[in-house]
Write a protein that binds this DNA or RNA. Structure first.
Lengths: 336, 336
DNA sequence: TTGAAAGCGCTACCAC
DNA sequence: GTGGTAGCGCTTTCAA
């Protein structure tokens, strides 16, 4: 069987209390005892049981990560960033793909509580704010990532979606485009809504109105984007540029353009959002608003860990600025 | 505080033993007591502590998943499949991205043991077989996924890489190609090696030799594939078809072709392996050997759970057949 | 059908 | 400096 603290104690001829102390660097222990105990632990290949430690009211060193779908590139990149920082600070992470279904969210949250995770990172859409509030009420550290609920006092890390939308519009307008269309996620997705709001506002600031019918919303997958882009491109009065609210939708738009024989970027410019692997891999590579994914991951686990340590009492909302990465999917409007 | 078994017992006027029994459906408990206790648990919103249960020598209902990198589409899709089946059977999964570094593998494995996970799914490259053998020796259920170590008695789920390579070659040869090149992962990656072996064998069966210099190996990323493909395409005697051992490499090859002005599939055919999101999203979409990812995920967690239950004593190695999905990256050789 | 009590491996408080 | 011991929340004999 695995060695326990008793085995170590017996072997060293001391009490388990002493072993526990050297293990945690607490109390006063003579250097010799300490050294001897370490040696024995090494020899017996002793590994303290996180389970037992946790039961004693301490931490499990485990975090829960709620995301819509780990197989979606944006979220798998986010997950990687979180995992890395978690590992760095000694935490492991349990992944929970919710498909944005409140029912799955609730199931997973209940599970995570039973497992006594030290904190929960929520990067999934949640319709029911009560879910988060209940967690908070129970004193379970929660951080929202890439989603926010301004009315709730909870730590949050988001990218400035509104500004992202503005930047997308500025870029396109700067290139001479006037007939701009938008493909976003359905209206319930706040981030998408904000991106669109920024986009539209900037258009208006330039005296351009977002045409009736040039705003399409749908689910977040490639196929959805393709379908909506097709609608846009097949109408007789079609846009010269499209702002797609994420990389998957943009790839869909790319496919649609190809399907109707339009060249990107010459016949059609596309601006995307996220800067996942997809935007590099697409042909042409996508001009996109980069979310600082790694930084977001770091921040979010730092926040949750600080909350665990009792520091950082005041709730904060960190807004990161997206950065426009210009690649090959946008070009100056050719005067006709 | 959270309700414990004591709270329930007190409230119901019974002992904790009784509560424990109804909780686990063990022993004989009168229907009434049982019903009453359920009611109270409901009312107090009682959730048994997995931690405490685990300490009593039971299971943690947690699995460890070792993969090279969760942000790699193939593995994020695998992870999703595993998560789903895990959830279905009541297990959560801790993700561990190892970057194929034995050092990280060891760190994670040690961590998983401290957390007393019920089993470990290994889908990452491991140079040191001892690591797996030690796990096995400790009686920790292990299943290998997409990697194998034939010499070790361990449950394994793999795709038939050799056959995949054969199918790729047959397809290309059937299209009239004779000058075939291969881009694979470095030789230490067994799956890639097997794919190449199958490919080469099939070529030879058709009386074609794999030309000197037409076999390139590298890391697994897009940039690596592009670089090697460029070398291939820029030599004066360049191949008419490339077999890339995974989707990322294939995308790299696609980029290289574009860079040198070759049209895929007319000037160059590309066959890929994996059938991840990338192969659908690429332009043209990739002809690829599909790994039955969902099925693999299901199988692998079923295997580990069966092992936990003590059934399934005999070790097995399940080999799944990859399926050729023909998309737009391959075309018949144009006679010149 | 139910309950008392002995652990599971570890921490923390209080003595010595 | 070191050790005794009471839990943490739950499972599991063994008795009643």
């Amino acid at each position: 069987m695995k060695a326990t603290i008793y085995d170590i104690a017996k072997e060293a001829g001391v009490s388990i209390a002493t072993v526990s102390k050297v293990l945690n660097g607490k109390g006063k222990i003579s250097a010799e005892t300490s050294k001897a105990i370490y040696a024995i632990m090494e020899r017996l290949n002793y590994q303290p049981s996180v389970i037992a430690t946790a039961l004693t009211g301490k931490k499990t060193y485990t975090l829960g990560l709620l995301i819509p779908d780990i197989s979606n590139p944006f979220f798998s990149e986010v997950a990687r960033a979180i995992e890395d920082q978690g590992e760095h600070l000694g935490y492991s992470v349990i992944m929970c793909s919710t498909d944005n279904k409140d029912e799955k969210v609730e199931r997973y949250i209940s599970l995570l509580q039973q497992k006594q995770v030290d904190g929960i990172i929520i990067a999934t859409g949640i319709d029911n704010k009560d879910i988060v509030e209940q967690l908070l009420a129970k004193g379970i550290p929660v951080v929202l990532l890439a989603r926010d609920m301004p009315l709730i006092a909870v730590n949050t890390v988001v990218v400035d979606d509104y500004v992202g939308g503005c930047l997308a519009a500025s870029h396109l307008i700067g290139l001479g485009h006037r007939k701009l269309a938008v493909i976003g996620e359905k209206d319930s997705v706040r981030s998408s809504r904000e991106r669109i709001r920024g986009f539209r506002q900037t258009m208006e600031d330039h005296g351009i109105a977002l045409q009736e019918g040039f705003l399409k919303t749908c689910d977040y997958k490639v196929a959805d984007g393709k379908k909506k882009a097709l609608e846009l491109l097949q109408s007789e009065d079609s846009p010269s540029a499209i702002f797609a609210c994420n990389d998957m939708l943009a790839v869909g738009a790319l496919q649609a353009a190809r399907a109707v024989g339009k060249k990107v970027p010459n016949d059609l410019s596309i601006v995307s959002f996220d800067n996942t692997l997809l935007s590099e891999v697409a042909d042409p590579p996508l001009t996109t608003l980069a979310q600082p994914i790694e930084h977001m991951g770091k921040l979010v686990v730092n926040m949750i860990v600080e909350e665990l340590h009792g520091s950082n009492k005041v709730k904060q909302r960190t807004v990161l600025r997206p950065e426009l990465i210009i690649r090959g999917s946008t070009a100056a409007m050719i005067r006709s």
